[in-house]
């Protein structure tokens, strides 16, 4: 997984709402509310990146060590991938 690059799906319909993000797909009945770290991760995906790059980026933003975020970022990317909002390129 660590070698993969993650990017927002081109099909995602989304909006910033303060620090949070609302995101959905054209055919989805659900609009997902990405708060806190999930919202920050989404915004960090302005540029596609590997897990490591995204973790580093967010660690700087939040002012914490990268190790403290790595697991949460991986899990969040997995969730967003399952939702179809994020795509993974190997």
């Amino acid at each position: 997984m660590s070698a993969s690059t993650f990017r927002r799906s081109e099909r995602a319909l989304w909006r910033r709402s303060g620090a949070d993000v609302l995101a959905s797909l054209p055919e989805s009945a659900d609009v997902h509310f990405l708060t806190g770290g999930a919202g920050a991760l989404w915004l960090a995906l302005d540029e596609p990146g590997t897990v490591e790059a995204l973790v580093d980026d967010l660690a700087v933003s939040f002012g914490v060590a990268a190790d403290a975020l790595a697991t949460d970022v991986r899990l969040c990317l997995e969730d967003l991938s399952v939702m179809g909002l994020v795509e993974r390129e190997s």
């Binding site: 319909l13 989304w14 909006r15 910033r16 709402s17 303060g18 949070d20 609302l22 959905s24 054209p26 055919e27 989805s28 609009v31 509310f33």
Partner: peptide, 13 residues
Amino acid sequence: HRDAMIWSIYIEQ
């Protein structure tokens, strides 16, 4: 604002 944005997304769908 969140409510307005949800509605905007529904409209885009």
